[in-house]
């Protein structure tokens, strides 16, 4: 992966992890009983953001790919459920409204990350196949 894109993704995920971690820590420590599902999802999202940032830094492509896919599925699921089953959500999560409270970054970031990771994987596969084809 282009190193600039990789570090920019690490940075964006670190900032999101920080935001989600702060939000969920405050919500869970002060008013968890008001919306346990929403606050737990915010905490899970913080852990996922942190895991993706570390995976991108350590070059753990599969972990980053799986994390981004889970994150995208989470944003789409929670965002959609927020509209069709609003009674389930007494308070907002990081992924409510497809991440609208965060400028839709929680929706856009996993799409960008998945695209970058899949392009990178395809290139690495091609590089792996090319020497084998040359040898034969």
């Amino acid at each position: 992966m282009n190193p600039i894109a990789r570090i920019a993704l690490i940075l964006a995920y670190s900032v999101l992890a920080l935001a989600a971690l702060g939000r969920s820590s405050y919500q869970i420590s002060t008013k968890f009983s008001e919306a346990p599902l929403a606050y737990s999802i915010s905490a899970v999202s913080a852990v996922i953001y942190l895991a993706i940032a570390v995976a991108l830094w350590r070059g753990l492509h599969r972990v980053a790919l799986a994390g981004s896919a889970i994150e995208l599925a989470g944003v789409l699921t929670v965002g959609t459920l927020g509209y069709i089953e609003s009674s389930w959500w007494p308070d907002e999560t990081v992924w409510t409204g497809y991440g609208s409270a965060y400028g839709w970054v929680p929706l856009l970031l996993p799409i960008l990350a998945l695209w970058a990771l899949l392009v990178d994987r395809s290139r690495r596969n091609q590089r792996r196949v090319a020497p084998a084809a040359d040898a034969s």
Partner: peptide
């Protein structure tokens, strides 16, 4: 010693710092 660590050239360092400053500025 990490072979997976991204290694940046000076111009890339300037661009990453620039992108970081923009993101951190907003945050």
């Amino acid at each position: 010693g990490d072979p997976e660590r991204p290694v940046l050239q000076p111009d890339q360092i300037a661009r990453v710092d620039g992108a970081a400053a923009m993101i951190i500025g907003v945050a």
